[in-house]
Design a protein around this nucleic acid. Structure first.
Length: 585
RNA sequence: GCGCCCGUAGCUCAACCGGAUAGAGCAUCGGCCUUCUAAGCCGAGGGUUGCAGGUUCGAUUCCUGCCGGGCGUGCCA
């Protein structure tokens, strides 16, 4: 409909242009928006205001000319010029009813479109280090990424979801050593736990399992572990200490045993994360291993490519990438003085790999604390010879947790964080998923656990689900009263839906496809949650104001078709958020 | 210091690439259950959109400065 009106206006403007009333050069895209106020009709365009200056004509006068030059259209009942020069369209009411037919024909496809034209989009999200269970901070990225992916798929993009597993690097070594030390404790060896080790209970659990499987096989005397190590914090440097401890573990255990403990930890944690996300409704097409990337030599290949382009140089024993020449604050190290590649280096290789896999567009969803990382990665992509615009980084602000007034500290190391699993068990998947995406991603979010945990009615997800359940309940009542639903009769009687509540619902239903489209293109799932709340609200109002199961069969069937369309739309919308649409509550 | 994000009703947030009278929920107050689920509905009050300028026919939206909050500024990941 919107497009149709746009074409009418474009035709009119073309005509004026040919008559010489409008200068040829000025090209302003013609936009038609839904009117916010029904007094302004169904749709409105500000085109006359935009072109007034160029035309050298008062906007109202220009609007009149445009309207006069516009072709007739049967679905437009009336056109008005209002305010400073808006062109308001009033649609023929009959055109509004068509939406019910459309929803019930398209069913779960309603709201899908092909604006993506099958373009391939790669979306990477969560990608938390496999050094511990996901905590509540990861939840927002998970809910956001998964919802955006669903929206894009609905908009006709071919979406590939990926989790980048940082299973290489120092953090994993720290985890390995942490597990081993807990294991030694289990064996009865007295080794103090390092200040920067992972303290969570899950480390003990993994160590306990390791002990059950392997017995004393990895036991080494405490003295041999501690002998000659530099002091740990607070007297010494905890980073130096943990590095020395890692080296010691490697020596005492040998590569094979060390690797076995590493594997045990990685697999246990990855399995946990995978299961956790799955229960959260988040699925991936691929779990991409950083280790595989490193071991296959692709990091060297990527660095070689940069080197050929003249982007690498050696300084103070390290190898640097000249990110400063491509908009970053300064140059960045890719290979450390000790010969180890940095996280950044493997990330360059990873993104090169994504680009080479032929995706038209890459979306990375990161926590906002990584924002400083964006320019250097964009610089790398440019240096690799690709258009940096192909990478889009979406920064999601952290959800700050509160228990009532009290701010909840969150640190993976401290081991006192709230896990995503705990949150899910307390408030349920539906509430958590919906809650997380209710705000726009760049907005800071206060997540009051007490409120979310309280199962109170404040949570909007229940409100939307309840609307769905209510429709289902009406259909159960229909059967109990011994009535048969007659869809065809209802369609023929749609013109009976003249109540203001019904008109409002029709208009809101018609907005669903464009809401999904916009939410997808702008990567803003919160637009969908707000829409669903509005649709549910209008339904509840309607429900209270009118009885659906009336004696008048054509009217009854028309209303049933309308509320069935509402139900379908709610189900579709919740589906995109991976929130269930219960038939009863 | 520099960089990024944010500042809208008592609280949590919307506001469709700048549009018409800035909207919801919660909380507060007052009503509605013999009739399709009251997890609901109806009504009332509540605003100098952090402050000061600028651009524009029009600014919560764009620009500049200031104030306040968060984050970043590693040969960490």
């Amino acid at each position: 409909m919107k497009d149709q009106l746009q074409r009418l206006l474009e035709t009119a403007i073309d005509r004026l242009r040919r008559q010489g009333l409008l200068p040829e050069q000025v090209r302003v895209p013609v936009r038609v928006d839904r009117a916010r106020d029904s007094a302004h009709g169904d749709f409105a365009s500000n085109i006359a205001l935009m072109l007034a200056k160029a035309a050298g004509m008062p906007p109202k006068k220009l609007a009149e000319r445009i309207v006069a030059a516009m072709p007739k259209d049967p679905s437009v009942r009336r056109v008005e010029i209002a305010g400073p020069g808006f062109i308001n369209f009033f649609l023929d009411p009959a055109a509004q009813f068509a939406i019910v037919r459309r929803v019930l024909e398209e069913r779960e496809r309603f709201g899908h479109s092909d604006i993506g034209r099958g373009r391939r989009i790669h979306i990477e999200f969560v990608s938390a280090n496999p050094t511990g269970p996901l905590h509540v901070g990861h939840g927002r990225g998970a809910a956001y990424g998964a919802s955006v992916a669903n929206l894009l798929a609905a908009a006709g993009f071919q979406v590939h979801r990926e989790y980048y597993v940082n299973d290489a690097g120092r953090q994993m070594d720290i985890l390995t050593v942490s597990i081993w030390l807990r294991y030694l404790e289990r064996c009865g060896e007295l080794v103090p736990f390092p200040a920067s080790g992972y303290r969570g209970d899950y480390v003990r659990d993994i160590a306990a399992r390791l002990y059950r499987q392997m017995g004393d096989a990895y036991r080494r005397p405490a003295e041999s572990v501690l002998e000659g190590l530099p002091p740990d914090a607070p007297e010494g440097d905890k980073e130096r200490y943990i590095d020395a401890l890692i080296d010691r573990a490697r020596k005492l255990l040998g590569e094979q045993a060390y690797e076995a403990i590493f594997r045990t930890g990685l697999e246990a944690i990855l399995a946990d994360i995978r299961e956790d996300l799955e229960a959260f409704g988040v699925c991936y097409d691929r779990w991409f291993s950083e280790r595989d990337l490193v071991q296959s030599g692709r990091v060297e290949q990527a660095l070689a490519l940069l080197d050929r382009g003249g982007w690498l140089y050696r300084k103070e024993g390290a190898i640097w990438f000249a990110a400063g020449r491509l908009g970053d604050e300064k140059d960045r190290v890719v290979v450390r003085e000790n010969g180890q590649i940095t996280y950044f280096a493997s990330d360059i290789a990873y993104h090169l790999d994504k680009l080479e896999r032929g995706f038209d567009h890459l979306i990375d969803v990161w926590g906002a604390d990584h924002h400083g990382y964006v320019p250097r990665l964009k610089a790398a992509i440019q240096a690799l010879g690709a258009d940096p615009e192909r990478l889009e980084v979406r920064l999601v602000q952290f959800a700050v947790l509160y228990r009532g007034r009290e701010k909840v500290p969150m640190s993976t190391r401290a081991g006192e964080f709230v896990t995503l699993r705990q949150l899910r068990e307390e408030v349920g998947r539906d509430a958590a998923r919906f809650f997380y995406v209710m705000r726009k991603p760049e907005q800071h979010m206060d997540f009051d656990l007490e409120l979310a945990v309280s199962q109170s009615n404040d949570n909007p997800v229940y409100y939307v689900q309840y609307a769905h359940a209510r429709v289902c309940s009406v259909f159960r009542q229909l059967a109990e009263k011994g009535w048969q639903r007659d869809v065809a009769q209802g369609m023929d009687a749609l013109t009976r839906l003249t109540e203001p509540h019904e008109q409002a619902l029709l208009a809101t239903l018609a907005r669903y496809p464009e809401t999904v489209e916009r939410a997808a293109l702008q990567r803003e799932p919160h637009q969908l949650t707000h829409y669903l709340r509005e649709l549910a609200g209008e339904f509840h109002t309607y429900y209270n104001a009118h009885t659906f199961l009336v004696e008048d069969a054509p009217l009854r069937n028309a209303r049933l078709n309308l509320i069935d369309a509402v139900r379908q739309t709610i189900a579709n919308g919740l589906g995109l958020l991976d929130v269930s649409a219960p038939e009863s509550m």
